[in-house]
Amino acid sequence: MGSYFDGMLRYFELSGRSTRMQYWMFFLIQFVLLVLAVVADYQLGGFAHPKYPQAPLTLFVIFVHAVPAITVSVRRLHDIGKSGAWYLLNFVPFGGVVLLFWACCASEPGRNIYDDTEPSRYEPRGGRPARQAQTTIPRAVRMGSGATRPPSPTYDGLSAPERFI
């Protein structure tokens, strides 16, 4: 249950990693809740009229879990060292098969470029070294670093007409 609640509490969080256990437990509990909602809607007569089915509980479960399902999948891709953009394979025929295979793969050991600032407490078994962060932006210039801007020889701190920004 903790893995499910972790996925729900990190509702809009695309950064970081989700382990295999977190990913599969989230989807298992989501599937069980969806089956229970369909059964409850059926018992309440929601599917009695085939032309106009009414399934409010099923729609509620789907809407509540739509965003967390995407974010958990993106974080799972980060955990194996892939970009979250690979999630778009869901829109390609048979792309979901590739994502299913990747969801079953072991985590990338140690830290990787998608880790948060604090190290992950999860350390999988294996001997692959973690990839280094690939960026051309110096750490002092990155947004959110809190560091001051490096001095520029052409900028004296006042507004200059030749300066664009």
Rank of each mutant, 00 (worst) to 15 (best):
S3C: 01
Y4M: 05
Y4W: 04
Y4E: 02
F5N: 02
F5M: 08
D6L: 12
M8F: 12
L9R: 14
L9P: 00
L9N: 06
L9Q: 05
Y11E: 07
E13C: 12
E13R: 12
E13Q: 13
L14K: 10
S15M: 04
S18K: 00
R20Y: 12
M21G: 13
W24A: 02
M25H: 04
M25K: 11
F26P: 00
F26Y: 15
F27M: 09
Q30N: 14
Q30V: 06
Q30H: 06
Q30P: 01
Q30T: 13
F31K: 04
V32C: 14
L34W: 14
V35Q: 08
V39L: 10
V39P: 05
D41K: 00
L44E: 07
L44S: 06
G46Q: 04
F47D: 05
H49A: 13
K51D: 09
K51V: 15
K51G: 09
P53Q: 05
P53K: 06
P53W: 14
Q54W: 08
Q54Y: 10
A55V: 13
P56Q: 03
P56C: 01
P56H: 03
L57H: 03
T58R: 02
T58V: 03
T58H: 01
L59K: 11
F60L: 15
V61L: 08
I62N: 07
H65V: 02
H65A: 08
V67R: 11
T71N: 05
V72K: 00
V74R: 00
R75A: 10
R75G: 02
R76M: 04
R76Q: 04
L77R: 00
L77D: 01
I80C: 06
S83G: 13
G84V: 04
G84S: 11
A85H: 08
A85M: 10
Y87A: 06
Y87I: 03
V92D: 02
P93T: 11
P93M: 09
G95Q: 05
G95I: 02
G96V: 09
G96R: 06
V97E: 05
V98P: 01
V98I: 15
L100V: 08
F101Y: 15
A103T: 06
C104D: 07
A106K: 15
E108I: 02
P109S: 14
G110W: 03
G110V: 06
G110L: 05
R111W: 01
D116T: 10
D116H: 06
P119C: 05
Y122T: 11
Y122W: 08
E123K: 09
G127N: 12
G127K: 12
R131H: 09
R131M: 05
Q132D: 09
Q132V: 08
A133N: 12
A133W: 10
Q134L: 12
Q134A: 06
Q134K: 13
T135F: 00
R139K: 13
A140F: 07
R142T: 09
R142E: 09
M143L: 12
M143A: 09
G146E: 11
A147D: 12
A147Q: 15
A147G: 03
R149V: 06
P151M: 03
P153K: 08
P153T: 07
P153Q: 05
T154G: 02
T154L: 09
D156L: 07
G157R: 10
L158W: 14
S159K: 08
S159F: 12
S159I: 14
A160K: 14
P161L: 13
P161S: 11
E162R: 03
E162S: 06
R163H: 14
